[in-house]
Amino acid sequence: MTMANFTLVVTSPPFDNQGSESALSFADALLAKGHMLNGVFFYQAGVHHANGWQTPPNDEMNPFKRWSALASQYRFPLHVCITAANRRGLLEEDNEVVEGHNLLSPFLASGLGQLVELCEDCDRVVQF
């Protein structure tokens, strides 16, 4: 089987609709099949995935933890558009607005240029 290198773009919010779960399942499946994932880019309402303060009930999915675990297992970066994130109240470490931050590692504060670079470097871009 030919291996492909994927970039995933997540513009769906966590919790509100199925896009979030579909993105995780797709990432799980492609990595299990031995394909490459050069990175995931979170944009629009998808930036809420990076909110480390999200606290769903214990018997529900926690997208922040699921992505964090997958990224650490397979070593791919989780990039977040910082402009889209700041608009939505997600603030990175050492921001100048409030003490503390909710955009937590392993999610990375990035720019749209990073999305362009990921796409340049992959075979397939899939958006959720």
Partner: peptide, 16 residues
């Protein structure tokens, strides 16, 4: 916000 954020992406891709 779809249109505004798509346009932002277009401008960055153009810059790159």
């Amino acid at each position: 916000a779809n249109g505004q954020e798509a346009l932002d992406l277009a401008l960055v891709a153009g810059t790159f």
